[in-house]
């Protein structure tokens, strides 16, 4: 079993280490780097909870080896809110629209939403909803998430009074 040096950036901070080849990026982020906002639901690419942004793309971190992220820039959910606690627009939209209950799936969903929202031409409602097929949520029934997307993409009536 081989060991490998890696150097990468996580949420703007430089990290270096020596890791086993078999270590997944999800486990590296959680265990070695302490970003426990990366949730591991299935460890086999089905649920999407572990989604992070690697070099500008939303990917499942359980389906990537940590050594493959050598030289990459990784963003986890911990990077979304501003240091003063101001929520990122995707977080605010999820909060306004009751887009989460237990919150287990939420970090992954937020990272997919963030990458599509923050790109030069933000995704519209259809594209963002299509990208949600890569996430499983066992609580919400998805309607709150859909409303959040509609609010975010400007195709929506704002959250109803008393929806919280």
């Amino acid at each position: 079993m081989s060991e490998h040096p890696i150097a990468l950036t996580i949420n703007g901070q430089a990290y270096t280490g020596r890791i086993e080849g078999r270590l997944t990026l999800a486990d590296y982020l959680r265990v070695n780097a302490g970003y426990t906002g990366v949730h591991v639901g299935c460890e086999q690419g089905v649920c999407g909870a572990c989604t992070v942004i690697v070099d500008g793309r939303a990917v499942r971190s359980c389906l990537m080896l940590a050594v493959q992220a050598d030289g990459s820039e990784v963003r986890t959910v911990e990077s979304l809110a501003a240091p003063d606690g101001t929520l990122h627009p995707v977080q605010q939209a999820m909060r306004d629209n009751f887009g989460l209950q237990c919150g287990f799936c939420t970090p992954g969903i937020l990272m997919t939403m963030a990458v599509l929202h923050d790109r030069k031409e933000p995704a519209g409602e259809d594209e963002m909803i299509a990208a949600m097929s890569g996430h499983i949520c066992r609580c919400t029934g998805y309607q709150g998430i859909r409303r959040a997307i509609r609010q975010l993409t400007g195709s929506a009536e704002p959250a109803q009074e008393g929806a919280h």
């Binding site: 690419g45 999407g48 989604t51 793309r57 939303a58 990917v59 499942r60 389906l63 990537m64 997919t112 299509a130 990208a131 097929s133 890569g134």
Partner: peptide
């Protein structure tokens, strides 16, 4: 093929 997130890899 797959989902947005899996097509990225």
């Amino acid at each position: 093929v797959g989902h947005h997130q899996t097509r990225n890899r």
